[in-house]
Nucleic acid binder design. Structure first.
Lengths: 337, 337
DNA sequence: CTGAAAGCGCTTACAG
DNA sequence: CTGAAAGCGCTTACAG
């Protein structure tokens, strides 16, 4: 293969210098319109492709962003963050940036080992998807690269984070159940487990408070142990009429359990979820749930990263992106006529 | 932030030149072991990070591979290729390469528009996941970049492709049904639709032939129209005892349909799939299916790409990677004792 | 064993 | 409006 065509090649053909070609192709001042047009056309004809590496050398920027997902959020059944990555990747490409995926292995997370993309200056910043361990957060922050966290926030760590509005999402969907006549409403989730679940619980609680429905301890159903592993859900003696699940997957598990007992959803029990991930659609019936606004979150996070690349000191703090309720068939209106 | 530390910085601290530092850090000849050690240690202390951009300039390689997925294979319910991408990305990282994901929009595919990663010399090669339209294949081949196709092959196009062994996969799993006493076995799939489905059908047919079971036209059930859109599956008058579905998703749909009719799987009908994707696990009962060996396929494809980067003329042709049967609960042994 | 020189492709700041 | 010079950080080929 003949070598790639460079600005110099174009310049020589016309009898100017690469400086002029550079100006022309970048629409900079200082080239006559006529010449500029001629250069652009010739570049097209010669199949000129811009060499990003040269630009990277010049301004020390790679125009890549590392997207890090802890491996435990990964796998055939957990494509949620991969979909997130896809959205981020799309937004980045619109901006002339590119996303490089790095799956963070648990060992590396424990040993505070930074990914190769850091060691090789492959990226100008990091987007972290999902919860990672505190020491690793500190490690990332000790490094000068702009970092934005998504779908995870930790109070202590003074980090820039784009999260979904867990509180108001759960609040809205609980309100919806109440509007449909439900009063005995359970919350399914380990409220000591993650900050997201806590916020979702509190949104649920706020809705109850506003409607003067007393919070019933029996109606807080644990779904996972302290390691995040799902456990059997214990149904209370006196059953509620509706369940607010902290995520779609748990709603899926709960519905399977209810069906095993011979109950039907939504005829016997209404169930709602959170996330609008794959579990919301594969469950029978389809789940009414709170949709996480992946695209808006991606845009916001990428915006933050870019500002931080321009201005290293920039702090954004935590921002919450509101999701919308997606209505499917898992809720029954039990209001008396 | 102070500027990134460079080889020159290290060199000056010790009183040598960047040439020596380069040799030392790359374990090249021509530096005393003592000095080499000293340099490496100092590099560590100073937090030196290699600048990939400089290397890229030198040898005109980006050390990125573009991974292209047509958007129609994308979405919340179709994470299969995203999982593939993840595997590719992991393999690449082991090799000091990085994968940049590009979702190919249908308009761009029709208009033969190459992705920005090509225009900007961001990548040294392409991996294409899944079927793309012929003109776009031609377009990709007209460009000098090494390209390997995965999970798709087209006879005419003289391309390098890593595909799953559809023929023997279907053959094996049909044999398995026959060993379990089944003789009336239907194939579910549009056999005029894609090359993969055709091969799977032929593998099924080979198994029948070997067992002297006559192919019954009534037992070839169409699952999708010519655009690949799933259609209602028409069950034959005389029902088979088992179904070989061309993919897990269709097996999932078929089982739902059988259940609607009041049948049970596997008690009344045995059903097997292909792919071992998410549908194999979410279906009730879990599907016995042929697992596509994603990791092995990724390694092979990346190996091909790297050889092609080294040697532009290199041709590999089509290679098939054998999958394994994953046994779950969708097949019943109906052999008379 | 160590280093001076040149070069990868582009851009910036300055001179004409 | 156009270009000569210098530089981004590294490596290669050669000289000492």
């Amino acid at each position: 293969m003949k070598h790639n065509v460079t600005m110099k090649d174009i310049a020589e053909k016309i009898g100017v210098t690469s400086v002029t070609v550079s100006k022309a192709l970048n629409d900079k001042e200082g080239v006559s319109d006529e010449l500029k047009e001629k250069i652009k056309q010739l570049a097209e004809e010669m199949g000129y492709r811009f060499n990003t590496a040269a630009r990277s050398m010049k301004d020390g920027l790679s125009f890549n962003i590392g997207v890090i997902i802890p491996e435990r959020f990964t796998g055939m059944l957990q494509s949620f963050y991969l979909n997130f990555y896809q959205s981020i990747s799309k937004v980045l490409e619109e901006q002339g940036y590119y996303g490089i995926l790095h799956i963070l292995r648990s060992e590396d997370e424990d040993e505070l080992k930074l990914p190769r993309i850091y060691q090789e200056q492959k990226v100008d910043g990091f987007v972290i998807l999902g919860q990672i361990k505190k020491p690793y957060i500190k490690k990332l922050q000790s490094v000068e690269l702009p970092t934005v966290f998504m779908d995870f926030y930790d109070e202590e760590a003074n980090m820039d984070a784009v999260i979904t509005d867990n509180f108001y999402g759960a609040y809205d969907i609980t309100n919806y159940l109440i509007r449909n006549g439900h009063e005995k409403i359970a919350f399914v989730g380990n409220i000591y487990s993650t900050s997201s679940i806590q916020d979702r619980f509190l949104g649920y609680y706020k809705s109850l408070l506003e409607h003067h429905i007393k919070l019933n301890d029996q109606y807080i159903l644990c779904d996972r142990d302290e390691h995040g592993k799902y456990i059997e859900i214990d149904l209370p003696e006196e059953l509620p009429t509706a369940f607010v699940c902290n995520c779609d997957q748990v709603a899926h598990l709960l519905i399977a359990k209810l069906k095993d007992f011979g109950y039907r959803v939504p005829e016997d029990f209404s169930v709602v979820g959170f996330d609008n991930d794959i579990y919301a659609t594969i469950t029978e019936p389809g789940l009414t749930t709170v949709e996480v606004n992946i695209e808006e979150m991606s845009r916001t996070a990428i915006g933050f990263i870019q500002e931080k690349i321009r201005d290293k000191g920039k702090k954004h703090g935590r921002i919450q992106i509101k999701g919308n309720i997606v209505y499917r068939d898992s809720v029954k209106n039990i209001k008396k006529k």
